[in-house]
Write a protein that binds this DNA or RNA. Sequence first.
DNA 1: CGCGCCTGAATGAAACTTCAACGAGGAAAT
DNA 2: ATTTCCTCGTTGAAGTTTCATTCAGGCGCG
Lengths: 247, 247
Amino acid sequence: MASAGDVQALVTDPKLVEERRGQIVRAAVKLFSEDGYYTTTIQQIARQAGISTGLIYQYFRDKDDILFLSLKMVLDTYEHEIPSQLDGLTDPVERLCVSVWAYCHIVDRLREATVLAYRSTKSLRADRRILIKDAETRTNRLIEKCLKACVDGGYMREINEYMLSYQLVMFAHSWALKHWVLSEHYSLERYVGEGVTLLIEPFLTAKGRRGLAGVALRKRAFTSDSPFGDEAKPAAALMRRRKRATA
Amino acid sequence: MASAGDVQALVTDPKLVEERRGQIVRAAVKLFSEDGYYTTTIQQIARQAGISTGLIYQYFRDKDDILFLSLKMVLDTYEHEIPSQLDGLTDPVERLCVSVWAYCHIVDRLREATVLAYRSTKSLRADRRILIKDAETRTNRLIEKCLKACVDGGYMREINEYMLSYQLVMFAHSWALKHWVLSEHYSLERYVGEGVTLLIEPFLTAKGRRGLAGVALRKRAFTSDSPFGDEAKPAAALMRRRKRATA
DNA sequence: CGCGCCTGAATGAAACTTCAACGAGGAAAT
DNA sequence: ATTTCCTCGTTGAAGTTTCATTCAGGCGCG
């Protein structure tokens, strides 16, 4: 039986299905983000993707299918990219800071799409809405685990890790949700910095603060070789540098 | 000239206009919140309001008008009810806590409508979107001022009041946005309590913490005469009691 | 030739908006 | 006082447009 997570295609070649779907979903995310789900037409998506309207129905059963895969793509990015940034890091405080930092940078990159998720998840069929929410819960757990590790290691005093993880997630999401006003006051880098000051530092133990200082130093080291370290699009550059460093 | 904020009616009697619009907007908020803006039809709104479809167009020029007044109603509630709760309170820490507490309780009461604001503000005409955002900014300032008063009075250490006010606002909004998961773990009262612990307490000075203890005691006094103080729908009861107390 | 992929105009339903007509109530005219 | 008329609020079916979805037919390749 075809259940909630499946999206079935009429075209048989799996390779082609994946490629075309990627093409269509990319177009859809762009248009949905700009204009909203209901105001975007299938014809617009087809034109944006460079194919005919009819072809879309060879890869998706209906418009709801497209929205589902679009949102899933966004949520999957969160779920995969944050752990990949933590790869090789062992210091709990550093892992926590990097996870928040990574989360915010992904939100920045997928800013419009993140807003789309808030706008349109409720437009999904109920059974699929649950799958999207599950994905969000899993991402949340990532942060929560980082917090638990800090507490267990004595880097952070006893707190409600569950609540704080939600605050940290909302902090990241807010960069997209309130971008219209936040971006007038802060660059992404400064925003993340303030977030750490407000939502992490106050709960660190003396041991934890020493750890944080180490993270700060290391970050400066990563950034210092670029004259534009704090500006424009530092996200991509920083991420690349980090990957090389941990590889 | 008719500008962004105006919604013009064909019916002349102002008294009638206000009444009918209230009727229509109440129906619209209910339906928009349940089903979303685009999936709700004018006919449904008319039926819910107990009038004919044609009549709606005597009081609104188009569907966008209805959405605008619906969202404005929600935002206005925030802007008016929070200050009214602060009326008569002088202690800065108490004012801060009550404003957060009031914000969360209003969000709880207008939970679906708050989600609606996040989903549908972008569906508004651009010039009106700005008006809605302005209203949100003004509400934000309320919280920010409470924070500033705490810092200036020596109740709270120097912090970025702007950023913290946004965190507090997002904390309140999250009760609506993440209600599907938060309500599994917390009652509203406990949620607010945890919020104070996480987002206010850490920044209080010794003087501020003494103030907070006073607030806690006073609140317990207000609640103690009810055997259900922490359950079900304490919001309305608490608010009524508070009003009597300050009157 | 047949199969799989693709096209884009046609279809049909859905829903925003309009409009012709109704009724009540008051003012003017007889 | 009664009748007529007119205005204002109201109705709900009709008009019009806008899409999601389908389908009859191309194109290329094995």
